[in-house]
Design a protein around this nucleic acid. Structure first.
Lengths: 311, 311
DNA sequence: CCCTTGACATTAGCTGAGCTAATGCCTGCC
DNA sequence: GGCAGGCATTAGCTCAGCTAATGTCAAGGG
């Protein structure tokens, strides 16, 4: 049986989808934020325009523009949803002082999350964090005990939780500038066969909290259509931190996840040994309990985190 | 597949349902306004409270009260939906001067709708009305040509339209005060056998625009568990207006639909010959095109009409 | 000029939120 | 004690909202 229309309005969910699409001017990015497919966004917008009997977007090649009607509607829908969100948020007053509990894998926690927390705390010194990191203990992802879980995979949310797509699982070869000076440059993928390739051991991937297909040098060479000669390596470990420290020390070349090494590359501590990436068909997500999101600090942090992905 | 949560909010449709329930302080009345069952409202509110992890209502016997959290949420959700409604309404500017086209049966148009239009125009003198009334022409209900249709039955809305429950189909015996003085009182239903019962002819009920099971004296006596002696009657007509004029003139007793005779009873032109009602298992509805509702005058009139049912 | 890329459009098909219908529970009223 | 009326609950139905796949189109690069 067909849902009833309320307040003479079309689907309120569709209006919220419209708001996200209008914000991004992209159905694809809206789909990512909402964790649904681009086709679902496209269809929902189409049905909304039909129900309202008005065009909201001008479709251009590889771009969207809002129509004047769409611009006006975006303003009022965003304002209306802001009002509603504020009201829902105020159901949970007095949550001070704030502590936010987050779970993540070790590498994610140390090389991506903590810097982000530090930048957040620059403006929110009153908010404390509990960071629960492990590659082995799968229970860390179980989230009755945490506010936010950072996850890799193809996640789904359950009743009572929210899910946000962060970025794809992409890695590139990186090494220290000194290693590059001594052994580089590596102009073709094939050239990396002469480097000391540092390995993330199979045990990392099969650990309980990860449980994914490996994304290592074998996958990298295959993606570039090059032949991996499987030369000797000075290090293979299941500990990402040991790997990164070895790379920083100039020991060799590691495959570095973009989100983990971006800051180090920016600071010049690491350089790209070769620009070619390898991407797994999975993404990184943030999953959060709805109840936690009613706490302003948690909502602020999630906003901060998502905003950081756009800069 | 499960709908995604937007803006960390629970189902926006559920929040809109909550707003209606909070306004009425009744799941039953909210269900009537939304044209869904009371169980659907109850369930939706229960799931909303679970998702928010907060109680919004205190359930009392035959009554609801808003909790403090519910009161706060009601204010913000109503304000948010007002903002969104206003934005949607403004997609259709420049609809001046206003003309509203309404279809109804003859009796409904003459004895209920027109007084309502008059009271509305007291405050909206710039709005004109086209009233299309017929008991015979079923095409009047076809609503590509009308903004609003007043209907009797168990209606359903289609895509692109809204439906509102107005009131049940209930009738009571009425006559003029002079007839009452001369022939009354009628203390038991059986007593009405000695009155001149005025009849709405079968052709009225089988007319194309109505097409319902009759609701006449036979049904009234049966509902009271009394015996109808089928005495002679001075008038039987398929025209409700002729019937009402005969009753006003003191010719006899008619079965008067509450909504049609309420004003005449209030003005003392008619009195209840007997208070017992008969109710058909159907209701009266207002059905309206979504596109029409975007016009402010139409929306205002519908609000006026619905508000009049509460006083 | 052809191929690739990336974003929107569309469609077939799946599924659980949202609904109905029925019934139970509970309290106040008569 | 029985009735009335409103909320709670449940079994079961269905289509809105989604996925997955594919088509279309225009811009950019070789």
């Amino acid at each position: 049986m067909r849902p009833v229309r309320r307040r003479y309005l079309p689907s309120l969910g569709a209006l919220a989808t419209f708001e996200v699409a209008a914000k991004h001017l992209s159905f694809t990015l809206a789909a990512k934020e909402l964790n649904i497919t681009q086709g679902a966004v496209s269809q929902q917008i189409r049905l909304l325009e039909k129900a309202l009997d008005v065009s909201l977007f001008v479709r251009k090649h590889n771009a969207l523009e809002l129509t004047p009607a769409g611009t006006d509607l975006f303003a009022s829908v965003a304002a209306g949803l802001d009002t509603i969100s504020e009201g829902v948020g105020q159901l949970y007053p007095g949550n001070q002082p704030q502590t936010i509990t987050i779970s993540a894998t070790n590498g994610m926690a140390a090389y991506w999350l903590k810097p982000l927390i530090d930048s957040f705390r620059a403006d929110h010194a009153d908010v404390g964090f509990v960071v629960l990191a492990s590659d082995e203990d799968g229970a860390m992802r179980n989230y009755s005990g945490v506010d936010i879980a950072l996850l890799c995979g193809n996640e789904r949310s359950e009743v009572g939780e929210e899910l946000h797509y962060l970025f794809p699982e992409t890695a590139q070869p990186v090494c220290s500038p000194s290693y590059m000076a001594a052994h580089g440059p590596f102009e073709t993928p094939q050239d990396l066969n002469r480097a000391n390739l540092l390995h993330l051991h199979e045990r990392h991937w099969s650990a309980d909290a990860i449980g994914w297909q490996p994304l290592g040098w074998e996958e990298w060479f295959r993606a570039q259509g090059a032949h991996w000669e499987r030369g000797a390596s000075s290090l293979s470990t299941n500990k990402v931190s040991l790997l990164i420290e070895a790379a920083l020390a100039g020991e060799g070349v590691m495959l570095g996840w973009q989100h983990m090494v971006a800051a180090l590359v920016e600071q010049g501590q690491l350089v790209l040994a070769h620009p070619a990436p390898v991407t797994a068909g999975r993404g990184n997500f943030l999953r959060c309990q709805t109840a936690s999101l009613q706490r302003p600090a948690v909502a602020s942090f999630v906003d901060h985190l998502l905003a950081s992905l756009k800069s």
